[in-house]
Design a protein around this nucleic acid. Structure first.
Lengths: 263, 263
DNA sequence: GAGTGGTCTAGACCACCAC
DNA sequence: TGGTGGTCTAGACCACTCT
């Protein structure tokens, strides 16, 4: 049987709308109406060429449009497929509440297990340096002061979904377990509180954009998948900013949930 | 003088990396290092062809990469330009607090004026219908119950940046100013509270993705600009969900700021 | 080896913009 | 009118995947 059976329509060469856009419209509608479902293979480029009677570049332009919209992925040597929506991880706004601070394992791993997924952490690096100006401002860092810099990558069922770089002023972190790759049970927030910096509140600044090539590589992002950038600042009960965490997240893997009081 | 002066390097045809990717790398680096600044015109396709000694499609592939990353915009008949970062609107998490409820004008307009920009609202539509299942679930709407549906578009300095569709259960809204295009001072939240539904809290679910063609048209989005989808649910002090607002925002125009308690 | 998508060439005609 | 990007053709060779 022919995979082109999903394509009933033909193009209108007299239309003002570009041919490749008409083809993209057809395929998008086929996906939207369920004639093509998640994971289904699209007709090959050769099949689309003969079906619509156009050159290869025209077909490829149409497929590029859908790829940029995040609807399909092309796999070299295999075919073009309707992109499967990955399982989405919902981040609740109380995820840093003290009562959720877990023992032993990293919080990410435990939270993942609660949703039936397998979480893991890799590429853990710890260093010490002057942070970017944007971070130094948030930490109200004086000239010449530095930070402990902790960076890592989080994976969900083996797929990288998030990278995080955390900055803690050196006067709070140097010489403590915070400067170790494994900061111990409860993570760096537990260590900060043990040292007298009881946490009061966090602020999160959320933006979204297309990834840099570097980010696309680290998170194995396909075309058409944007990233969240989430910059979190932690404040202790004295109002001092004690940590800034700069996180890049695959946007197709997350929904961020927040609670806002009305008064 | 030649605009190609920004291009010192040449490509390495023996490299494994595709030629168009090498050209994209060069141009990206030129933008990153400031040799090409916001608003600057890139060398024309013809100039790039002769500079690198490649076919036009190769040049266009390189430009497409940067366009998909949101770094450049092509203007038909004029040239290709380094995309200017638009002014960003920062949304604070207390923006719906009662004390910020403004008189007379729409909240969006007043907030815009405070930042020196000009805000406006257009395409206001009000109707009544059964909402999508996702919204009906959030409102705990019984079978057969409907909602008042209010939709509009927000513009900042003339540029559309956000569309919003608001759903209010008909038993709360029908026959009140909420069902009018202009709900009066303080907006629909003020009207809900007047009718005994004092607001207690909101939840916001934030996701990000590439826009549909329809969204790209309404928000005049260039390629490489994702959208935020923000679904807000308003609860009154009895715990009843009294409104769901489904918002699509141009991601390059917003930073979402949230406050999270640590306890 | 057959079929797939990835890259690249060398043209062509068109629509849009500025001068 | 000349230069710009937008669309399209008709080929070519390559790298990858599956059988």
């Amino acid at each position: 049987m022919s995979t082109t059976s999903v394509l009933a329509e033909t193009i209108d060469p007299s239309s003002d709308r570009a041919v490749y856009k008409q083809i993209a419209d057809h395929l998008r509608a086929a996906i939207g109406k369920g004639r093509l479902r998640e994971g289904d293979q699209l007709p090959s480029e050769a099949q689309l060429m003969s079906h619509y009677g156009v050159a290869r570049m025209t077909v490829r332009n149409a497929l590029r449009v859908l790829q940029d919209e995040g609807l399909i992925t092309a796999e070299h040597g295999r075919g073009v497929y309707v992109r499967a929506r990955p399982p989405v991880r919902r981040l609740a706004s109380d995820r840093f509440a003290q009562r959720h601070r877990k023992e032993g394992k990293a919080a990410f791993v435990i939270e993942s297990e609660q949703t039936g997924a397998t979480g893991s952490v890799d590429m853990i690096q710890v260093s010490q340096s002057r942070p970017p100006a944007e971070v130094a401002d948030r930490l109200r860092l004086a000239e010449g002061e530095g930070t402990v810099v902790r960076s890592c990558r989080y994976l969900l069922d083996g797929r990288p979904v998030e990278t995080a770089v955390s900055y803690i002023p050196s006067d709070l972190a140097a010489g403590t377990p915070i400067a170790d790759p494994n900061p111990g049970p409860g993570g760096i927030y537990a260590r900060l509180e043990e040292n007298g910096h009881v946490l009061d509140r966090f602020t999160e600044d959320v933006s979204a954009r297309m990834p840099t090539p570097e980010e696309a590589r680290l998170l194995q992002l396909g075309p058409g998948v944007p990233v969240f950038r989430l910059v979190r600042t932690a404040y202790d009960i004295d109002g001092r900013a004690v940590e800034v965490c700069d996180t890049i997240m695959a946007a197709d893997a997350y929904v961020l949930a927040y609670d806002l009081p009305a008064h």
